[in-house]
Write a protein that binds this DNA or RNA. Sequence first.
DNA 1: ACCTGAACACCGTTCAAGT
DNA 2: ACCTGAACACCGTTCAAGT
Lengths: 227, 227
Amino acid sequence: MAAKRSGAQGKRPQRASVSLQSAEPPLSLERIVATAVDLLDAQGVDGLTMRRLADRLGSGAMSLYWHVDNKEEVFDLALDSVLAYRGPQQLVETQDWRGEVVHMLEDWRAIMLRHPWSASLLPRRALGPSILGRLELLSKTLSRAGVADADLNVALWSLWNYVMGATITRASFDVSDDDRAAAQQRLTRLSERYPTIERSRLLLDSDWDGAFRKGLGFLLDGVAPKQ
Amino acid sequence: MAAKRSGAQGKRPQRASVSLQSAEPPLSLERIVATAVDLLDAQGVDGLTMRRLADRLGSGAMSLYWHVDNKEEVFDLALDSVLAYRGPQQLVETQDWRGEVVHMLEDWRAIMLRHPWSASLLPRRALGPSILGRLELLSKTLSRAGVADADLNVALWSLWNYVMGATITRASFDVSDDDRAAAQQRLTRLSERYPTIERSRLLLDSDWDGAFRKGLGFLLDGVAPKQ
DNA sequence: ACCTGAACACCGTTCAAGT
DNA sequence: ACCTGAACACCGTTCAAGT
């Protein structure tokens, strides 16, 4: 009936038998968050359920609520844990601000694509420390590159918008690869109505990485301080 | 207990009494979709429930399933109905391709902001006729402006990404206006960690429309055919 | 301090049945 | 052809209770 779980144990974790090697470590915020990320990676946003999460942790469903206020908080914490920036925290003194910015944004995008649920979650929720850290670093880099204070927010939001849009789109298209082919088929059938995008095979053109870099380049041309 | 419904009738629509003026028109796809849009506008994505939708339509919950396969289809139809393009379908012959593109994209964005649930829904679902029509028109305009076929997809996806990112972000920030102020407050308290974005008051800078237009300008500079 | 089960008020959807 | 209620297998969360 339910989707079969190919994994280890059955429905009821065998906690009654004490001394076997199944002794689960005690619940903790860290374990909860880490397991939530695993579950999200495996099952997507809709797959994360308080009951399922508790199951994976070998605990009762309600035990979670001692560590966490509600499901929203689980999402916030999982998101922030995934977005943590593992690059150099202070800036290396470099002349190549463009290279740095591209690197930061590609890293950000790559991480979100590795956890395809994360991108679409990010805009709806409060900005956690991880993402604020990334924005701060980006902002500092642009500022040092000579972008005027008055232009900083426009630059930052433009880049943010572009990265988020690209990543959300890419992540969803990834999920529905067949759908995409089917859509292009349907499109071909309707080629009198949509001749231009049919001809360019818009829905099948899959050099996402190249397109991302190129569009980002355009944006950086505009953002660059005019000397 | 439940959120109070300030509207007209109570829980059970009075369909037993026949000849009163409450005679609901029969169910139809159009009525279902239109009511779904209303409900989404009023309550957001999570507010759309098959049961609530049926309630608004004065029908039993299961009646919907004769007209519609499942809830997903309701989302698809509501989205496509909202995104319908009401501008001139064939191109006016004009020299000002930039103006046309800006107009199309601002119209697209404005419509999504008028239905704040729509933007975040769009990337996940199959592209319906409305959005394909918009892409076709945009593509045709760029093509006529002289963008080479080989560059068309990159241009289209760059613009798409930017518009989607900007609109999704804007729509979510709109919802949580207080949260945003709270976030900026929290940020001020942490100003040693995030000095740059604190100083620029990134989270409070609300000239969204101006920022959108400016970033779009950057992108169009890059997309423009080099003569 | 930490964990639990029963219970409540919801969901989407199947199915067999009504007109 | 169109609509319905009962029922199933789920949800998130409250609460009173256990250790």
